[in-house]
Simulated scan of single mutants.
Amino acid sequence: MSSVEVRAAEVALHRRAAWACAAAPGRFRVWEHVGVLAVLAEDPALGFLSSVSGVGPDTLPEAIRLADAPVWGTVAPTLVVPVGLGGAALSGAGFTRVGQRPLAIAPVPASTAPESDVVAADGSFADVLLAGYEVDGPVAAFIRAEHRLATVRGLFLMRAGSPIAAAAMSLHGDVAVLGGASTLREHRGRGAQTRLLRHRLHLAAEAGATLAVATAAAGSASAANLRAAGFALHERLAWRRPRTPGSTPAPGGRG
């Protein structure tokens, strides 16, 4: 995949994050600085959101400086950097690798068939999605707020008249973000998410999108499903270091 496609995918995910943070309870800030994309969530339970991404060879020094900015307060943001970029510089600046955050990116097929058992979700979408995720607390509240947005389209895969899996998508220019998907425990391992993935690509094509992006944990079943559907994985590493004690508290509000 090209650097242009990767950049478009990261920007689309950043825009989706901005929507979610604007809708969710809590204190957030979402902004762009010299081409680098930043998200700050003050609630420790949502610490996985606090990140600096969209980093390339020309912006790595600025990303490192941004991670030191007073705006973060006591929050330690995760720097998300392509594999092979800046390892020595990050280690030298005190960062430690803490995992992987791959992106799955694919061109949207010009013509795909819809899935007959996939329907537009009703008001119970977040309930089904969260039942599949099996999470609660602030994470569940954040997910529920995000998926109440009219700009985030929810879908159900039905079986015997009941939803067994849920998936969402949103459009950001000509990029479709296929974010938010889960299957009820008793129905896992039977291809539900593959069908929902195909249907979302169909809808993305109908809407005129040319690129689709999704995230999945490295080595997960979701990542395998995305590969099987023709997505290429853009490997990114997560780096983090503790904040310096006594840092200036982050300002409230959303940016």
Rank of each mutant, 00 (worst) to 15 (best):
G179L: 07
A23D: 12
L37I: 01
Y133R: 04
W72S: 03
A229D: 03
V34K: 15
W19V: 04
A250T: 13
F28K: 11
D68F: 03
S116F: 07
A224T: 08
L90E: 02
L226T: 12
A67S: 10
S91C: 11
A141F: 04
T210P: 01
R159P: 00
H172D: 10
H14G: 07
V55D: 04
P61R: 04
L203W: 05
F48D: 09
V175K: 15
G191W: 04
L60Q: 01
P114R: 06
G191R: 07
R159Q: 08
S51C: 09
G180K: 13
V52N: 00
E134H: 08
A145L: 04
R185A: 15
P107T: 08
P102C: 13
D127R: 13
P61N: 05
A67C: 10
P82D: 07
F125K: 06
A12K: 03
P249H: 12
V98W: 12
S124V: 08
A192F: 05
A126P: 02
P163M: 10
T78V: 14
E5F: 11
S162P: 00
R254M: 12
T74M: 14
L155G: 02
E206H: 10
D58T: 13
S162R: 15
L203R: 15
H187S: 14
A176N: 09
A23M: 05
F95N: 07
D136S: 14
A223S: 15
L60V: 02
A141G: 05
A212D: 05
T183I: 00
E206C: 12
S116P: 09
D122H: 08
L155W: 12
D68T: 06
E206N: 04
V119L: 04
A22D: 02
P242H: 01
L226R: 11
E42R: 15
T244M: 08
P251I: 10
F142A: 02
Q100G: 12
R241I: 04
A168I: 09
A76W: 03
D43S: 14
S51G: 07
C21K: 10
V135F: 06
A110R: 15
P57T: 02
E186K: 15
F125D: 01
I164L: 13
D58E: 14
V98I: 15
R16D: 08
V135D: 06
S247I: 03
T78H: 11
G253P: 06
G35Q: 02
L178E: 00
R148E: 11
A17W: 04
L211S: 07
A207V: 08
L178Q: 03
F95K: 09
Y133E: 00
R240W: 00
L211D: 05
E5K: 13
W19M: 12
A88C: 07
A45F: 06
L37K: 11
S220R: 08
A214S: 15
S182W: 10
A106P: 08
P82R: 11
G84H: 09
L40P: 05
L103N: 10
R254H: 14
P44E: 03
H147N: 13
A168Y: 02
R144I: 01
V152E: 11
A8R: 13
G173K: 01
R16C: 03
